[in-house]
Design a binder for these strands. Structure first.
Lengths: 114, 114
DNA sequence: TCAACAGTTCCGAATTTCCGAACTATGGAA
DNA sequence: TTCCATAGTTCGGAAATTCGGAACTGTTGA
């Protein structure tokens, strides 16, 4: 298991962000993560309601999100903690993530009160 | 040559927009179109400075932009007139296109004064 | 009728995506 | 320790997508 790659803020490319968020499954994952007070582990996010994402696919989704610069993943014991880089990202690309989540009908910034 | 398909405003999907604009070549084309007072024909947009896009690829780029809802193409004599649907789109997805173009470093909304 | 031009369609090669199966890493129980 | 369960990654191959040259279509002007 090679160490996970995370791009530096200045290396984040808009095309990678847009590509990562052009897949509704990844958007659903990202939006859950953005609103989650829970730790954002992979398995916790596999269930999209209408379908359960196979774990190899899920792992790949996380990789795409991570390498595009949208999230940070770190191992914590057995599991992986994923969190968004939304504050950083909003500094680099003002308004972008918010506009995208809004377009998908996932109003951002409202941590789910669960 | 079958008639060109344009989605109705309400059928435009955010994933299609993001996908279309996740390719820097398409963004360059779209940005030129957004800033163009010139008619926006295909051949006028083929030259990206660093490379000339082959015409079948260009045709495909226009198809992706059109079917995602970003542009309208209509035949005018021998050539094709392409124009953005940015006003409509901004109504449906407020701030989205602007944020994307800004992220790419292509400040929108400033029609080129040529 | 024909030639020129703008753009589209076709199709095969190269690339990418998807996901099951096999694998790796960590922590707890025996 | 050793073994097992759990969480996630990597591998590999089938399916889908992308790219672009060559052939085609539609329009105008000679």
């Amino acid at each position: 298991m090679r160490p996970l790659f995370h791009p530096a803020l200045e290396d984040i490319k808009p095309e990678a962000i847009l590509y990562a968020l052009s897949d509704p499954e990844r958007v659903a994952i990202y939006a859950k993560l953005a609103g989650a007070s829970s730790g954002g582990t992979c398995s916790a996010l596999a269930d999209l309601g209408d379908r359960v994402i196979p774990k190899s696919s899920l792992s790949n989704h996380f990789k795409v999100l991570r390498e595009s610069g949208l999230i940070i993943s770190e191992r914590q014991g057995v599991e992986m903690r994923n969190q968004t880089r939304c504050t950083e990202l909003d500094e680099r690309f003002p308004g972008l993530i918010k506009a995208i989540l809004t377009a998908y009908g996932q109003p951002p910034g409202q941590p789910k009160t669960d």
